[in-house]
Design a binder for these strands. Structure first.
Length: 722
DNA sequence: AATATCCGTATTTTT
DNA sequence: TACGGATATT
């Protein structure tokens, strides 16, 4: 490892003036006694920010100012002469990346900060691979499959291979995709993955082999990459002697945030990128590792010093976030987990108020209790934006959402169901993907299936007629259209035999696609979407129920696209960095500038609020009963609980309902009784415990029911008498 | 061959 | 609930 020497001219551009938030300071590029970007750091943070002699591992406990420290380090590197575009900052989400770069911008020069390479592993991989292009053996215009596409492709192949026929029970496409991803990300042989993680599909291992081979082959043919491919290709480029020098030599520093949630491939990538002399910095906390299901492994954190000899380790232990009451509770919960790097978090924020634990009657009761508490706190001056409700799984907030709507409490929800996963959004994205990459057979399937009278059989017949199945030579040389492009042209010319009912839709589709592909007055992306929407307007009524709502969703998509002009970029960004909260595109924040956050615990990683309300803290939900089978899974649930607790600054309220309905969907009254989470039971005395007064609510409901029935009867009578 | 209808069942977390 | 899969109908 070498000392960082500044051979480059320092980035001297003066700060662009006003940084509104927080302390705006002049960016002094030369030696000042206390450079602005290092001001206010504690000793450990300072050590981490300024370390300059080789690999660095920062073990940063919850709330210890990790973001600030990392931003200060980046700023320090820039001040020390590293060109910003030779710094690579890998974060877990897009949100984290932009927050970090923003922060760097406030302590250095905003223009310099914007030149830093930053983003998720997948997004950066996408960018690098497009730049590397044919050199990596990749078609220039590859499209990226998201999770749903991957499942669809497996589904298609499963049918083609004749699996799942004649009552043979074959694993669902989702399961197949899960096995695949697990196998690839953890770099474990199939048999081992199946036996260890998916024992119930062990009978089908041979079929899985066949399917996997077909899947991989088909991906190549369709010129698509799945999420795993992005990482695998990057790793290959970063580690192969032929390319690594050029690629890795591009960077002087590679910094990885949330290192405890990286998988083995990502660790290899880091190593590869640093082989040419770049200095790695990894920041993480093994107590907060919560992505094992994605093959993340805390071992990466533990083995960092082995992979990067001479690594220096800094531990951040002072917690600036939580009161001692909250922190003590969290520490004690974590203590039950046996393996974590030695560190003891402490806080000098004072004891604060005791966390509360409210035992509720049922889920409805819990919703009322939480809503009451939220409004109470708001009365006391805690804005909604400083409060969050956290839960283990997306649907845990369903009942609460109803209650919040009833009381007109505005909120946004992070995690849970995704806009992009709805059928109609997938439809229009498939249209865009067809335009972008005519080899994308999945997209063709989806789009053609929208036509009246066209089903799987017709599609199977027509695609070869168009010549889509043909292998296409990548001919990097000339302007020759590839086979799939010829297929598109043939389609636009009207080739293929179509059922009669499809005529109208088929004509429309051709003209719409032709317009979007037209060279002359090239439609910009927004105009393309408008035009494609016309096709959807015609076709959706055949396929969907509430057409107008779905069309309105398409308009939202168009709004989002507004700023983007590049279709390929739009598609890639959408799949690699999808909107992470529901309603992200409808813009509720404009109407109310104060709103509550609802979030899965996973999506709350890295965030903090003055008040945190943790729902459904019952055994079976937290830990999830899905995770009970092995010790590793259970331990991760404990860390998940720890993450939830440590999001709170001042107020922590935990609730769980005693009565759970056996069946989530039906309204029958069968139920079972719940207990407090096994992780919280031992620390129950840390809470101020309450029991909600559940009686009374039912009588009121009965009264209402009578009134409502009368009204309905009156209305009904009017229908035949008026 | 496509579509309508019915049934049973599955349910974490996300790039 | 809501979705996928299997069966019945057009």
């Amino acid at each position: 490892m070498f000392e960082l020497t500044s051979t480059q001219p320092p980035p001297v551009a003066p700060p662009e003036g006003n940084d509104s938030g927080g302390g705006s300071r002049p960016a002094t590029a030369t030696t000042a006694a206390a450079p602005g970007h290092l001001e206010g750091l504690n000793a450990a943070q300072l050590e981490a920010a300024t370390h300059s002699s080789g690999p660095l591992l920062v073990v940063a406990g919850a709330g210890t100012g990790k973001t600030r420290t990392l931003a200060a380090r980046v700023a320090h590197l820039i001040h020390g002469g590293s060109p910003p575009d030779r710094i690579l900052l890998l974060t877990f989400t897009r949100r984290a990346a932009s927050e970090m770069l923003n922060r760097v911008g406030t302590v250095t020069d905003r223009r310099a900060a914007s030149r830093i390479w930053g983003g998720t592993f997948h997004a950066v991989a996408n960018r690098l691979l497009r730049a590397a292009g044919p050199a990596a053996g990749l078609p220039g215009g590859f499209t990226v499959l998201d999770q749903g596409d991957t499942v669809d492709l497996f589904g298609m192949l499963r049918t083609e291979e004749g699996m799942g026929e004649q009552g043979r029970r074959f694993p669902r496409a989702e399961t197949v995709a899960a096995v695949w991803s697990r196998m690839v990300n953890s770099q474990t042989p199939l048999s081992e993955v199946v036996n260890g993680q998916f024992p119930w599909v062990a009978d089908h291992t041979e079929d899985l082999r066949t399917l996997f081979a077909a899947y991989n082959e088909r991906k190549r043919k369709l010129q698509v990459l799945d999420y795993d491919d992005l990482l695998l290709h990057w790793r290959a480029l970063a580690t192969s002697p032929a390319t690594s020098e050029q690629l890795a030599g591009r960077f002087e520093h590679v910094l990885v945030d949330e290192y405890q949630d990286t998988n083995p491939i990502q660790a290899d990538i880091l190593e590869g990128m640093c082989r040419a002399g770049a200095i790695p910095t990894a920041v993480g906390d093994d107590a907060q590792s919560i992505y094992r299901f994605r093959s993340a492994t805390v071992a990466n954190l533990w083995t960092f010093p082995d992979r990067f000899p001479g690594a220096h380790r800094v531990t951040l232990e002072q917690n600036y976030r939580s009161t001692s009451a909250v922190l003590n509770l969290a520490n004690e919960v974590l203590a039950a987990s046996d393996r974590h790097l030695d560190k003891q978090l402490w806080s000098d924020r004072g004891m604060g108020s005791r966390p509360t634990l409210t035992v509720c009657h049922d889920e409805g009761d819990q919703s009322r209790v939480v809503a009451d508490r939220i409004l109470d706190l708001r009365e006391q001056g805690v804005d909604l934006r400083d409060q969050a409700v956290l839960f283990r799984t997306g649907h845990h907030s369903d009942a609460l959402e109803l209650e919040l709507n009833r009381r007109s409490i505005p909120f946004v929800k992070y995690g849970g169901l995704k806009f992009l996963e709805t059928g109609h959004i997938k439809d229009i994205l498939a249209l865009l993907r067809m335009l972008e990459n005519p080899a994308d057979e999945l997209a063709w399937h989806r789009v053609l299936g929208l036509l009246d009278g066209v089903g799987p059989a017709t599609i199977r017949k027509v695609l070869p007629e168009l010549g889509l199945g043909e292998t296409n030579e990548p001919d990097g040389a000339g302007q020759e259209p590839t086979e799939p492009q010829r297929a598109m042209i043939r389609f636009l010319d009207g080739a293929g035999r179509w059922p009669r009912q499809a005529t109208e839709g088929h004509e429309l589709l051709r003209s719409v696609l032709a317009d979007c592909l037209a060279e002359d007055p090239a439609l910009n992306l927004g105009a393309q979407l408008e035009r494609l929407r016309e096709f959807c307007t015609a076709v959706f009524p055949l396929r969907y129920d509430n057409t107008s709502a779905r069309l309105a969703d398409l308009d939202r998509l168009t709004t989002v696209a507004g700023s983007v002009t590049d279709r390929s970029r739009f598609l890639a960004e959408l799949t690699l960095e999808p909107p992470e909260r529901t309603g992200d595109w409808s813009g509720p924040p404009h109407l109310d500038d104060d709103w509550l956050t609802l979030s899965t615990i996973h999506s709350a990683k890295g965030c903090e609020w003055h008040a945190v309300h943790l729902l459904h803290a019952a055994d079976g939900n937290l830990p999830s009963e899905m995770a009970l089978s092995d010790r590793e899974g259970l331990d991760e649930e404990l860390r998940l609980t720890y993450v939830a607790l440590t999001r709170a600054r001042d107020h922590l309220d935990v609730t769980f309902p005693l009565r759970y309905h056996v069946n989530r969907y039906s309204s029958d009254d069968r139920h079972h009784w719940a207990q407090l989470s096994r992780f919280l039971e031992p620390v129950r005395d840390h809470f101020e415990e309450r029991r909600s007064s559940e009686a009374g609510g039912n009588d009121l409901t009965l009264d209402l029911r009578v009134t409502v029935t009368d009204e309905i009867d009156t209305g009904l009578t009017a229908l035949w008498e008026g």
